[in-house]
Amino acid sequence: MLITDEKIGDVVVLKLKGRLDASSAPKLKEQVKSLIGNDRHELVIDFAEVDFIDSSGLGVLVSSHRSVNRAGGDIRLSALQDRVRAVVELTRLHYVFEIFEDAVTAAESF
């Protein structure tokens, strides 16, 4: 999985590309941890180019969300493909995360 980041105002948008699974989830966890360490607490994770998520990916989203919340910030999600959205909703995590149609809208919601 590729992760690129860009800033929209004070918000960091992490753009994921590929599969968020047991193999790639630790990479996202490290990236979020690094951002928290650099005092970046307003994050958007953009799923526009993610076509698969498994339980490990969900777990990293939840743990990252908790870490950012503890630091006083928030993680918001954007552009979930139908398949990914279905898994997020099946596990009720759409009650945990605010989800937006696109990264810009998500960033502007802070």
């Binding site: 339980s55 490990s56 939840v62 743990s63 099946l90 596990t91 009720r92 945990v96």
Partner: peptide, 19 residues
């Protein structure tokens, strides 16, 4: 089943398989 109120960080795998 996962605790859908607590939203745990683990424990979704078997639930997903069964679903």
């Amino acid at each position: 089943l996962p605790d859908f109120e607590a939203h745990p960080e683990t424990g979704y795998g078997i639930y997903l398989i069964k679903s």
